[in-house]
Amino acid sequence: MVEIMDTYIEIKSVNVMATTDNPTPPKMTTKNVSVSYDNNRALKNVHLNIAENRVTALIGPSGCGKTTYLRCLNRMNDLIATCKVEGEIKLGGHDIYARDVDVEVLRRRIGMVFQKANPFPKSIFDNVAYGPRIHGLANSKEELDAIVQKSLRRAGLLDEVENRLNASGTSLSGGQQQRLCIARAIAIEPEVILMDEPCSALDPIATAKIEELINELKERYTIVIVTHSMQQAARVSDYTAYFHLGELVEQGETNRIFTAPKNSKTEAYITGRIG
């Protein structure tokens, strides 16, 4: 017993070091964030930093507030009339809930991929070109073509759709649709990409493709990913945050969280005893 306690304490101190001596500067910081729907608290006092050019995984049992947290980061929660967000969320040091913040500018810098693939019922080309078009990122048809090609290639979809760019985005398979949504998100070159269970409806092969993609993307983008798969979190993320009933229970380097969780709830969850 005593031995176990000792190692536990030891690990705990190491972990504190690991989180505070974070080598990469935070891209986004969230301090004391609480969210409530009507009077139902969904998140309580969450402190979490998102490291730049790293993948941060959010894990936790269903209903613990992962999606809610993710949607705070690009203010998608503004769309829900009953949703109230408190606390401080900063992107590159600027409060994103400040009065003079324009959500369109913010969302152009923080892209999002949803849990359920939601391509527009337009052509594959138009799906990807939509963002660049509304933000005026291309000055000519050729430039737009180039952006679309590049985005599709980076999303690992180009080979499959190259000769049917005019086909409807909704005619693709589920996994292809999800990669199309990723291509659409990266076409406007956001700084941060939020992914809400991007692989929840996909088979292992499509999942592997998307994980590979995440690995490539993190060189240029900061990624926050919600996932229910421990293996996926372990494979793709650098940092992991564990949520439980609206509270951030534990956060730290992924390796450390999975090998030596300091909180018993985290341990119970990653070893499959709850959740």
Partner: peptide
């Protein structure tokens, strides 16, 4: 469906 609206707004559409 709301998912279409969210898709557009998340891309920074007004």
């Amino acid at each position: 469906p709301p998912s279409i609206r969210e898709a557009a707004l998340a891309l920074g559409a007004t």
